[in-house]
Design a protein around this nucleic acid. Structure first.
Lengths: 141, 141
DNA sequence: TTGACATCGTTGCATTTGCAACGATATTTT
DNA sequence: AAAATATCGTTGCAAATGCAACGATGTCAA
């Protein structure tokens, strides 16, 4: 009996992730043309307050080069500011501007709506699904 | 209350998918240095037999340009052959060589092992997880 | 039959990605 | 205190990706 790709979890997981990302991106595309890294940086900053690039890199599961470039674009768009760190000169501290906070408020609503839709679709499987995802994310978190 | 990225399903899903893909890639890297598209094409061909590029594109959730390039590399490596289609000259038919079949047999074993590991890790949540993934993959399948 | 339109696979191109320097600053070791 | 190491963020570069031509073939309609 040959190998069945359709039943293979890494494959299914990847397809599902791509699909869901696309659906979500379509929602916030109307609000702002953010890339996924930009969206993650913004979302994390809105909760953490001012933090360094390295902090975000660790939290948001993206390479530091990606966070660096996403931050540069977000700065250019006026959504965040960069500043030096008092104690450690190597660090670059990121902080949302009012404009960034306002954008994130709108995006947060859209995200919450989308999340609610997903949970409805999943029904009773939602809790187990959430547990499984947390588990598979591995010891990195 | 601000938006919580860590609890956001599309994010968790994406992180989990990346993580699992990496783990799996590490397993088969020793056997053959395949990219993910190459692995998918190979895996699909091993089950479907000779089919066209378009067929694989639809089944394996990849852009046709990606399937085209993956096929070219696999052909170069001697894992598959391309041939014309009798009825429709536009089609390119792909078929595994003996070498390709042999490789896929080894990879299939590795994949099955990995899948078993994942299922063990997930425990009782596995069935719900699988259902959820199938559902989220959307009506495309 | 001829012409308009659709489909197939490949290729070109701009963008994104991941990784490995790199300069600048901190920390640790001797 | 000096020297060796480590860490931070940016940048360069090669490879991968997504999308839109494109040539070639097929199909459909007038």
């Amino acid at each position: 009996m040959s190998f069945d790709l359709d039943a293979f979890l890494p494959y299914r997981l990847s397809v599902a992730a791509t699909q869901v990302s696309r659906r979500f991106a379509a929602r916030y595309a109307a609000e702002a043309g953010l890339s996924i890294p930009e969206w993650r940086v913004l979302a994390h900053l809105s909760r953490s307050g001012a933090v360094s690039v390295r902090d975000i890199t660790a939290r948001v599961n993206l390479d530091k080069s990606i966070v660096s470039r996403a931050s540069a674009r977000l700065e250019g768009a006026g959504y965040l500011r960069k500043s030096g760190h008092a104690g450690d000169q190597r660090l670059v501290v990121l902080d949302l501007t009012d404009s960034g906070r306002a954008l994130m408020e709108r995006l947060g609503r859209i995200a919450d709506e989308f999340q609610a839709e997903l949970l409805t679709e999943l029904g009773d499987d939602a809790p187990a699904f959430r547990r499984a995802l947390l588990h598979l994310a591995g010891p990195t978190d």
